[in-house]
């Protein structure tokens, strides 16, 4: 490794510390959810190390727990992660056009909302070594947090375990509510999606449909409506 590559890597590593801390706490919740539903701890860690994403792997895992079909699991996870197309596309404009494919494939694995967000703050072209450094600690934080969450839960009494069932939904609310306070289009997206989801849950015939499909229908309906009614400006993307 040359001197400039090493310093770019270290720079990335440093910028990854806050992301890593955030990931540690969220992935503990993921590990808890897995063990709470009797999935072995190593499956939880395997999911985190191969998926490295929050909402997508939470939803996919929830479907595994409820015994959803592979097609449903694949489609749900894909629909949730379809936003990475946009981030991956933006990144492709900020890297050396001559960067070889193997390096691009490695970078691609690290495209998460947070890593992408931080990497795009880099002035000028993003060096491969910098991005590699940036994704290193968040990756290990995500895996380690999952392991901690998945192994600690069996030590907890039943009352605490019941209460922990709500943790993941609390986290989801913490993701969607703050930006919706200032951006009313987002508030509408949330209300519409949640409303449709409730209809599918409570209405007799609609409730036959499995949760994966309900999520897809809610997402497509609410997002297309909002995209038609409130198209985003460039700076709002990603």
């Amino acid at each position: 490794m040359s001197g400039t590559m090493k310093s770019a890597y270290l720079h990335g590593l440093r910028n990854g510390i806050p992301i890593c801390l955030g990931y540690l706490s969220v992935s503990v919740t993921f590990g808890l959810m897995c063990t709470e539903n009797d999935l072995p701890f190593w499956i939880a860690v395997l999911i985190s190390m191969t998926n490295l994403t929050s909402a997508g792997q939470f939803a996919g895992t929830a479907l595994i727990i409820s015994g959803g079909s592979l097609f449903e699991i694949g489609l749900t996870t894909f629909v949730i992660n379809i936003r990475y197309l946009l981030m991956s596309l933006s990144l492709s404009q900020k890297i050396d056009p001559a960067l070889p494919i193997p390096q691009r494939l490695v970078m691609s694995f690290g495209v998460t909302d947070e890593i992408f967000g931080v990497s795009m703050q880099h002035k000028g072209q993003i060096p491969f070594a910098y991005f590699l450094g940036l994704m290193t600690l968040p990756f290990w934080g995500w895996a380690l947090g999952t392991l901690i969450g998945a192994t600690a839960v069996s030590l907890l009494p039943d009352m605490v375990r019941s209460a922990l069932g709500i943790a993941i939904y609390g986290m989801f609310l913490a993701v969607i509510i703050p930006p919706a306070r200032t951006e009313h289009a987002l508030a509408w997206v949330i209300v519409i999606a949640a409303g449709i989801s409730c209809l599918f849950y409570y209405l007799p015939v609609l409730s036959q449909l499995s949760s994966g499909w309900v999520i897809i229908i809610c997402a497509v309906a609410a997002s297309s409506f909002a995209a038609w009614k409130w198209p985003v400006k460039d700076e709002e993307e990603a």
Partner: peptide, 9 residues
């Protein structure tokens, strides 16, 4: 694409 994650969650 911008709205999708919010709707899903």
């Amino acid at each position: 694409l911008y709205y999708v994650p919010y709707a899903v969650l």
